[in-house]
Simulated assay, not measured.
Amino acid sequence: MKRLIFIVLAIFLTCSFALSAQAEKLKRVSFSEVLELSSGSSVKKHSYGTHPSQFFEYWPAKNNAAEAANVIFIHGGCWLKDYDIRHSYPLSTALTQAGFNLWSVEYRRLGEDNAAWPASLNDVSKAIENILQQTNGKPTAVMGHSAGGHLALLATSKNYKYAEHIDAVIGLAAITDMQVYVAEDGSCNQAAKTLINTAQSDFNLAEADPKQQPLHHNTWLLQGSADNIVPMSQAEVFGVNNDNVNTLIVDDAGHFDMIHPKTDAWTVIIQQLNKELKP
Results as ranks from 00 to 15, higher is better:
residue 95 L to K: 04
residue 106 E to P: 12
residue 94 A to D: 14
residue 90 P to E: 15
residue 88 S to F: 01
residue 104 S to D: 14
residue 116 A to V: 00
residue 105 V to G: 08
residue 128 I to M: 12
residue 117 W to K: 06
residue 86 R to F: 15
residue 95 L to E: 00
residue 107 Y to N: 08
residue 88 S to I: 03
residue 121 L to N: 12
residue 125 S to Y: 13
residue 96 T to M: 09
residue 103 W to A: 05
residue 88 S to T: 15
residue 91 L to C: 08
residue 99 G to P: 03
residue 112 E to K: 05
residue 87 H to E: 15
residue 124 V to P: 06
residue 109 R to E: 09
residue 105 V to K: 07
residue 128 I to Y: 03
residue 114 N to F: 13
residue 92 S to L: 04
residue 105 V to F: 05
residue 79 W to L: 06
residue 90 P to K: 15
residue 113 D to I: 01
residue 96 T to S: 09
residue 112 E to M: 05
residue 104 S to H: 02
residue 118 P to M: 05
residue 81 K to C: 13
residue 84 D to P: 12
residue 129 E to Q: 09
residue 93 T to A: 00
residue 116 A to Y: 03
residue 82 D to W: 12
residue 116 A to D: 11
residue 111 G to A: 07
residue 124 V to M: 06
residue 91 L to K: 12
residue 121 L to T: 10
residue 120 S to I: 10
residue 129 E to S: 15
residue 104 S to T: 01
residue 122 N to V: 12
residue 85 I to C: 10
residue 89 Y to A: 03
residue 127 A to V: 04
residue 110 L to I: 10
residue 114 N to I: 14
residue 86 R to N: 07
residue 85 I to T: 01
residue 84 D to H: 12
residue 86 R to T: 06
residue 82 D to E: 11
residue 85 I to D: 01
residue 84 D to Q: 13
residue 107 Y to P: 12
residue 126 K to A: 10
residue 82 D to N: 11
residue 121 L to F: 13
residue 124 V to G: 15
residue 119 A to D: 06
residue 124 V to T: 15
residue 128 I to P: 02
residue 93 T to M: 01
residue 109 R to F: 03
residue 79 W to G: 03
residue 98 A to I: 02
residue 79 W to K: 10
residue 98 A to M: 01
residue 86 R to K: 10
residue 110 L to T: 04
residue 126 K to N: 11
residue 114 N to M: 14
residue 103 W to S: 08
residue 92 S to P: 00
residue 80 L to C: 14
residue 117 W to T: 14
residue 125 S to N: 04
residue 80 L to G: 13
residue 93 T to E: 02
residue 87 H to I: 12
residue 108 R to N: 13
residue 92 S to E: 13
residue 126 K to S: 08
residue 129 E to T: 07
residue 83 Y to M: 14
residue 94 A to C: 13
residue 85 I to V: 06
residue 109 R to A: 09
residue 80 L to P: 03
residue 100 F to H: 01
residue 124 V to K: 02
residue 95 L to S: 07
residue 110 L to R: 03
residue 124 V to H: 06
residue 86 R to L: 08
residue 108 R to W: 08
residue 90 P to Q: 06
residue 115 A to E: 07
residue 99 G to V: 05
residue 108 R to C: 12
residue 108 R to F: 05
residue 83 Y to I: 12
residue 88 S to P: 02
residue 98 A to F: 00
residue 125 S to L: 07
residue 102 L to D: 01
residue 107 Y to I: 01
residue 117 W to M: 09
residue 87 H to V: 04
residue 113 D to G: 06
residue 101 N to R: 05
residue 83 Y to V: 11
